[in-house]
Design a protein around this nucleic acid. Sequence first.
DNA 1: AATTTTATGTCAGCCTTGTTGACATATCTC
DNA 2: GAGATATGTCAACAAGGCTGACATAAAATT
Lengths: 185, 185
Amino acid sequence: MVPDAIPALKTQQPGKDPGKDPGKDILAELPAYDLIELFFFAYRDFVSDPDRILDEYGFGRAHHRVLHFVSRQPGLTIAELLDILRITKQSLNRVLKELLEKNFIESRTGTSDRRQRLLFATAQGHELALKLAKLQTRRIMRALSEMEPEAKELVSGYLLRLIDPDDTAHVKQLVFGPKETHKET
Amino acid sequence: MVPDAIPALKTQQPGKDPGKDPGKDILAELPAYDLIELFFFAYRDFVSDPDRILDEYGFGRAHHRVLHFVSRQPGLTIAELLDILRITKQSLNRVLKELLEKNFIESRTGTSDRRQRLLFATAQGHELALKLAKLQTRRIMRALSEMEPEAKELVSGYLLRLIDPDDTAHVKQLVFGPKETHKET
DNA sequence: AATTTTATGTCAGCCTTGTTGACATATCTC
DNA sequence: GAGATATGTCAACAAGGCTGACATAAAATT
């Protein structure tokens, strides 16, 4: 039913490429359709899990992201959160305000710098964050359980390398903790 | 600066869990924070690449997804596209209409079933789709190049297993082609 | 042949979550 | 004290989801 075409090739080298250099160069340029599409489908399903639960609380995905990182990093500041999420403070403020009002997050004035707001998840906030994390963990574990033990290290190494090089150090610190240097396989 | 807390544990077993069963059960329930967060960061950067180019054409990510799958699967029907993207026909129609008007996609009446619309990328459409796919491929290849040769197979196996089990067969067919059965590592 | 189902299109309105720009306040730094 | 910084807030807008209702052509069923 669905034609099994490879339009990329048809469009790319439809007569002859004036650049020449066949072989490995062409391979390097051949789109990795499989990984591109699998990434799309996997992410689609991965983020869909929490949606139903979030709905019950009147929250959306934006709330989830904020709650997750605050729960994981108690004392996170607004600036750090903005840097992680890469959204504007106005966007953040909208969802953050709701999380504060509904008592899932609380904000305390910074001690060393009283301009800062330090964000903490409340008991209720931690509970919801954990519930959602567990849901996603179940999916991850299902996938990993069918694979070699080294799979986890390999996958996390891959995902880390997919990130913008300027950001890997920052992400590494956020994900694995500030202390460890962490070496990859 | 950032506390290295593990709120999950604090919140989960803060006194004693009446459920009991310590040991491996707790391990199974421990959230895979690293993979959850790396997935978020990696996807964030992965989809950001095409954004600048899409901007030049007045398109967004929604257009990208539609164009990508139509380009990959010439003759795709509306129904199949809706099933892939998991959005409503109204949402699809909005972006599809623009892709048709700007001549990146064309629609032909189905031959066997004249109710259907078969979608095809135009030359211009293929060109843009390929440009975007190459951009994402570059990122993927950069990551893979630093890893073992088996990494690609392992990663695609992982992503495939992350997908809803009911969908894996369908996705496999879409991604790897209808003929092959494809066995994983 | 008449009826029902299916594939698609379209109008109208709403929600979430992103954006920009402007401006206010408290606090820190120099 | 002046300027920079961290945050908050108002207003308006855009993209891209959603629901519900209704229309049409073609296929399928009875």
